[in-house]
Design a protein around this nucleic acid. Structure first.
Lengths: 215, 215
DNA sequence: CCCTGTGAACCCCTTCACAGCT
DNA sequence: AGCTGTGAAGGGGTTCACAGGG
């Protein structure tokens, strides 16, 4: 399996995360091989879509038996980069931040929150859920030893753009953002937004306008 | 403004939520009128995209002055259905559930979490953050009085499909799901997933494969 | 002149359908 | 017979570019 990923589309990448989860479950259940039809059903996509997605970065199927579950899972893991542990820092230790610090799903899939930062000195220089909480002023000095290249933002909206620039400057260029505010584009820094209320508004639209069901 | 929304695409709806937020900020800042160019920049889309999105459900612009901020904001609110308060119930009062109960962003945008449910009797028949926590067995009886038509799932993955069917049966057909598990399709029930780890994996892919920047 | 609204072109993603193989 | 991988068709969403108007 060559893993020659010449421009795999981001849509495909999003589905790969689903496939990988389903494959993990199948492996846990002891399944060795799976056909595209089955795997697609479990992933809520069409078989054609699944095969096309996989084909976009290699050729893995066995015509007689389908796909080797463990092998394909490992291959997708390598493509996503989750085969090696990724260190993440958390910014903001309010309610949401604390919840994220106790969330087990991260470790399971290869992400480790190694430290947290907050602006409030009441909260800093402590240990919470096994992680040290630094003051945000120490971002640059403390981060040097952490070997982290991703960040989760769960702080307030104040000085958010400046924060993202500081993160970019110390090599943290991939950011998961929970703050409901638009962040100005910083070259080379990729921000992925999670806007819960926006999703609720989308559901509200569907309810209001009778766009029931659908995918 | 006719608001004739013959099949507004869901992509457009997602952006409408952004426009509305930006318009709210503009209104707070005292701005009366705004051109598509400005509004598009603030929303991180192209001016053509913005005009196309708005055109898909009506014609609101004034050639000389652009769009009336308050009026357009109200119109989008009507389209999204957030002009009237929407009651929401929460399933699962763990760390995440508690965080959501204290989140102020919902009320601001027209959503009210009216009650919560949990399976653990240690947690039920109490008040938390002003909301009663019922036992999940009382879902059908308690929900009748709540006038809620949306739900947020922040519970464990056990019996998730059954739960969604029960919700659908009592008229709650629009669901925001935080549980990292695939939910079987239920006719007429729309589930919107929030998968935080999937977003991290997407960022991991981008970092691993050097797909820096981009939108 | 510079705006909005929109036909038309463009592009990307999904789906179809089948060749090739077991 | 039934599967994978893929050219080709199809569909949807975005961008272009301009008509129309203040």
């Amino acid at each position: 399996m060559p893993i020659s990923n010449e421009s795999v589309s981001l849509r495909t990448v999003e589905r790969l995360t689903v496939y990988r989860k389903v494959l993990t479950d199948l492996a846990d259940a002891g399944t060795e091989y799976v056909f595209s039809h089955k795997l697609a059903n479990l992933s809520a996509v069409t078989p054609a879509q699944l095969r096309r997605d996989l084909a976009s970065f290699g050729s893995f199927g066995n015509v007689a038996r389908g796909y080797n579950v463990k092998e394909l899972s490992a291959t997708i893991g390598r493509l996503l980069g989750t085969n090696v542990q990724k260190n993440v820092i958390l910014i903001g230790v309010g309610n949401l931040g604390k919840t994220l610090l106790t969330y087990r799903g991260f470790e399971e899939r290869g992400f480790r929150v190694v430290a947290a930062f907050d602006r409030d000195r009441e909260k800093t220089d402590r240990i919470y859920a096994g992680r040290r909480i630094h003051h945000i002023d120490q971002l640059e000095t403390a981060a040097a030893a952490l070997d982290a290249h991703m960040a989760i933002l769960a702080c307030g909206p104040t000085d958010l753009n400046e924060l993202v620039e500081r993160l970019g400057a110390i090599g943290i260029r991939h950011i998961l953002n929970f703050v409901p505010a638009l962040i100005a584009e910083v070259p080379g820094v990729y921000v992925e937004d999670v806007d819960i209320t926006a999703k609720l508004e989308k559901l509200s639209y569907m309810r209001t306008n009778g766009a029931d069901s659908a995918a």
